[in-house]
Amino acid sequence: MNTLLQSLRATLALTVVCGVLYPLTVMGVAQVAFPRQAAGSLIVTDGQAMGSELVGQPFSDPRYLWGRPSGTSPSPYNAAASSGRNLGPTNPALTEALAAQATALREAAADPALPIPALLVTASGSGLDPHVSPEAAAVQVPRIAAARGLDEGQVREAVARATTPPALGLLGEPVVNVLQVNLALDATGAGR
């Protein structure tokens, strides 16, 4: 009984330290040193949240750079319920889904020989991947330029500005932020 009482008191004491003081300390430091990141790296225009630069959005319009397919339900890129597609590596349903997305990309580009990067037709783990690879962006540049009546060079420049190389050249992969590219494209006013 004594041990149980000690356990109860110890758990409550540890709760105050690890469950209250610790997260509040982190919060204090975070709010002072990194307020934007601590609040979710939101993109805010005129007081309206346009999204988070870390959370992808669904795009299927030819004028926009497309991100990766999303496994969230009931709608793609549902940030309230992150999820992968969780299809197994030999599941025929996965093969069909990959082929369908490849077809959609080729039809939108009106180019039946468009090379398809695997990254662009596979669903990410979170279903909210904000990025594509530079190659996956490059194959979409001609389509976006045509749909918006822009120079391919202008589109490439928007992509380059939203590209981040891996830190130290080693940590992670080079990525293009899809939402940032599309906001920049809309800001040109072309083809809206």
Partner: peptide, 19 residues
């Protein structure tokens, strides 16, 4: 946090989808 992990008591944020 410095790399972008949130630390806040904010409720869910509602953002407008571009498309």
């Amino acid at each position: 946090v410095a790399n972008g992990v949130p630390q806040t008591f904010s409720p869910t944020v509602e953002a407008r989808l571009l498309q």
